[in-house]
């Protein structure tokens, strides 16, 4: 369930913890915490030191 809007969010077939998915309802970026049961947390916003 999306922690932002409480919509049901499916885990992609190749999903795994640490992967980021988008909520189809509100568009929030969610990080997969667990697959079974599917638990999501809001993905943190981009930080200034992130990158290549």
């Amino acid at each position: 369930m999306c922690p932002e809007c409480e919509a049901v969010v499916p885990v992609p077939p190749d999903g795994e913890p640490g992967q980021v998915v988008q909520c189809g309802e509100c568009g929030a970026e969610l990080e997969v915490v667990t697959i079974d049961p599917p638990v999501f947390t809001l993905a943190p916003p981009e930080e200034e030191d992130w990158g290549e």
Binding site: E46, E48, W50, G51
Partner: peptide
């Protein structure tokens, strides 16, 4: 450019 950073930021 900033000294650190990526993805075209700042």
């Amino acid at each position: 450019k900033p000294l650190t950073g990526s993805w075209g930021r700042l």
